[in-house]
């Protein structure tokens, strides 16, 4: 009986992930902003929208803004609590990455970042002098022993019950200790007024997407916690054209590929492909697993790495 329930819930979870993968291309919550941006050159362009009482109205595309209905308190509370029963993990298959960088741009779009600001960064790696170079997407590792949250003086960055490490830019004092503490260089700082600050200034702050970004505070990868709440895969995972990313729940032992929608057993995937975590000797216990870049699906087409890049 108990087993059946857990099977059911897993099926439901996988189903919803499958649906969201299929739907992601069609109704991304931020596609409206994209449309609004594309329309800036043609100010007169109007779109038809259905109001709540059933009337069809026309609105200038430039006027479209994303909405968040929940008040700040509610968003902050549920954002700090996390999603009960979940334990999110990501698997990155390095043999499939060809540096398409769709993950990076999808992430920057979602989190209102500039082109030089990376929550996820595709790095050209070469482990030793005579080893093969490869591309390595590097999001926040969402460590289970996070060096960053330990040092935060105000509990602005914290780890929630579902394993995600978030940053609260309503509380962050901008001391940047967490940036210094992170061995994966996963965190960024808003040194100046964030991108489109004026446009988003009236938006209610959503801690699970860390938008709108704020000047003088730290920002980081959040596994798209806002999308997870809607049973969608993270932006980077959905955006990948090459099947690099798997994302899912360690409690369910299931991860879904963001490109193919295929769901596999997490433990089997790791075991059969010699999965590993980055710099495990540091004891940070990352939640992002890597599959080694063997039998690459794409040739390495990066600049040949010079030593200077390999700090």
């Amino acid at each position: 009986m108990k087993e059946e329930t857990s099977n059911n819930s897993r099926r439901k979870f996988l189903k919803s992930f499958g649906i969201s993968v299929g739907a992601a291309g069609v109704v991304s919550s931020f596609s409206l902003i994209g449309a609004a941006k594309a329309a800036t050159k043609k100010p007169a362009e109007m779109v038809n929208l259905l109001t709540q009482d059933g009337q069809l109205v026309q609105v200038d595309k430039n006027q479209l803004r994303p909405t968040v209905n929940e008040p700040l308190d509610e968003l902050q509370k549920r954002g700090r609590e996390g999603i009960p029963g979940k334990s999110f993990v990501m698997v990155i298959d390095l043999s499939k990455c060809r540096n398409a960088r769709k993950c990076m741009s999808a992430c920057q779009n979602h989190h209102q970042l500039r082109a030089d600001q990376h929550h996820i960064n595709v790095l050209q790696m070469q482990d030793a002098e005579h080893t093969a170079p490869y591309f390595m997407p590097k999001p926040c590792q969402h460590c289970d022993n996070p060096p960053c949250t330990k040092v935060c003086p105000v509990d602005a960055t914290f780890k929630r019950q579902d394993g995600i490490v978030l940053i609260d830019n309503e509380r962050c004092i901008g001391c940047r200790f967490c940036i210094a503490a992170c061995p994966y260089s996963a965190r960024i700082f808003q040194w100046t007024e964030p991108k489109d600050a004026e446009k988003y200034k009236d938006l209610t702050y959503n801690i699970e997407a860390n938008v709108p970004q704020k000047k003088g505070t730290v920002s980081k990868c959040l596994f798209s916690a806002d999308r997870l709440r809607e049973d969608k895969l993270p932006s980077c995972v959905s955006a990948c054209p090459n099947g690099v990313y798997y994302f899912g729940d360690r409690n369910e032992d299931a991860v879904t590929n963001g490109t193919t929608g295929e769901t596999v057993r997490f433990s089997k995937l790791i075991e059969e492909n010699a999965g590993y975590t980055l710099m495990e000797e540091l004891g940070t216990k990352p939640r992002v697993y890597y599959l080694p870049p063997k039998n690459r699906a794409f040739e390495f087409n990066g600049d040949l790495l010079n030593e200077e890049n390999l700090h």
């Binding site: 003086p153 105000v154 004092i173 808003q190 505070t217």
Partner: peptide, 16 residues
């Protein structure tokens, strides 16, 4: 050196 010196009191209010 702080990014948000206006929030310096957070160190007292939310101090960890």
């Amino acid at each position: 050196d702080m990014g948000r010196p206006d929030r310096v009191l957070n160190v007292m209010i939310h101090g960890r």
